[in-house]
Computed example of a mutant assay.
Amino acid sequence: MTNLFYAVIFGGIMAVGLPLNIVALWILLRHHSLKSPSAVYMVNLAISDLLLIITLPMRIYFYATGNWSLGSLVCVSITMLFRNNIRSSSIFITFISVDRLLAVVYPLRSRHLRTPSRAVKGSVLVWLFVLVMNIPEGLNFYKKASSNETTCFESVPFNHGRPPLSYFYLVLVLILMVINIVCTAMVSWTLRNHLSDSAKVKNKVNVLLIFFLNMVLFIICFVPVSLGAITVSDSSELTPMICLASVNCCLDPLLYYFSLDAFWKKKETVHMTREQMTTQRTEDTHCHRPL
């Protein structure tokens, strides 16, 4: 009965997260074209979420049937994609927070830092970091999963022997959360005091909501599963935390929405300005036409 409940939860996450992230990725690529650092980080975040979502059908199959017949290699691959999502998502979300901090608090001094090319390089380094970490961890999990290929996720504990990598990832997530807390505090203080060298922000609520969502993602999705990786000995006890962590792929599109709101308004303003300029030119032509 419990496994069936997990199957329903993962099915709901896939049903909500898949269309939201596909639409979000299409909007980012179609309308932003990687022309801003935030857009670059959000595209990578959406890709990370989609990589997690495509593994959910196999999790649903396992928890619905209680059996695994796809072999240990597929099992470990799915497990690693889930872990990669937690790690890459937490880093990209932190990048977005830092980018918003620089844009709001130090708009002029940070222009040479906030470039699409730097964002692309940073994103490539994140993926390389995640892939390099996969090698020792994946090999270790493959050995454990090969001993029992019928139970998959229940036989691949996060903390087998509590390897140093588990502690490293927990410390990494906690450091990233602290960075997000500092960014949130600095932006809130800046918006409240209207500093002269800060950017003029029209929609302060949306800006604060971005940071609020980032904090929610860390507190609910990233920290519990990272902490459970070194405290929980039974893999089945970690499943609820994995469910919570998977919810991040449904919450991330909200982050895109609040970030894209300014873009749509800006686009409308530019569009109206062009129409007004065209109308003004037409009127000027008629006024100066010789009688």
Rank of each mutant, 00 (worst) to 15 (best):
I175L: 14
I175N: 10
I175R: 04
L176D: 12
L176E: 15
L176N: 08
L176F: 07
L176W: 03
L176T: 05
L176S: 08
M177N: 13
M177V: 10
V178Q: 10
V178W: 10
V178A: 15
V178H: 09
V178N: 12
I179M: 11
I179H: 06
I179Y: 07
I179G: 11
I179S: 14
I179C: 13
N180C: 05
N180S: 03
N180T: 01
N180R: 03
I181M: 07
I181D: 09
I181H: 07
V182H: 06
V182K: 10
V182W: 07
C183R: 00
C183F: 00
C183K: 00
C183M: 00
C183Y: 00
C183T: 03
T184S: 15
A185P: 11
A185S: 14
A185Y: 09
M186C: 14
M186Y: 11
M186F: 09
V187S: 01
V187W: 03
V187I: 02
W189Y: 08
W189K: 14
T190F: 02
T190D: 12
T190A: 02
T190C: 07
R192S: 12
R192T: 05
R192Q: 11
R192Y: 06
N193G: 06
H194D: 15
H194V: 03
H194K: 11
H194T: 08
L195A: 12
L195Y: 13
L195T: 10
S196D: 04
S196I: 04
S196R: 02
S196H: 04
D197H: 04
D197C: 04
D197S: 08
D197R: 03
S198P: 05
S198V: 01
S198L: 00
A199S: 01
A199C: 01
K200V: 06
K200G: 07
V201G: 02
V201F: 00
K202Q: 07
K202V: 10
K202A: 10
K202M: 04
K202P: 01
N203R: 01
N203T: 01
K204Q: 13
K204R: 09
K204F: 01
K204A: 09
K204C: 06
V205E: 05
V205W: 00
V205I: 06
N206D: 08
N206M: 02
V207S: 08
L208V: 05
L208A: 11
L208M: 11
L208H: 07
L209T: 08
I210P: 00
I210D: 08
I210C: 07
F211N: 06
F211I: 01
F211C: 04
F212K: 02
F212H: 03
L213F: 13
L213I: 15
N214W: 02
N214V: 11
N214D: 15
M215C: 13
M215H: 09
M215S: 13
M215K: 05
M215P: 06
M215G: 13
V216K: 04
V216P: 04
V216E: 12
V216R: 02
V216M: 11
L217P: 13
L217R: 10
L217N: 15
L217V: 13
L217M: 15
F218H: 11
F218N: 09
F218C: 13
I220C: 09
I220N: 12
I220H: 07
C221P: 13
C221S: 14
C221E: 10
C221N: 15
F222S: 11
F222E: 12
F222W: 04
V223C: 03
V223N: 05
V223W: 02
P224K: 00
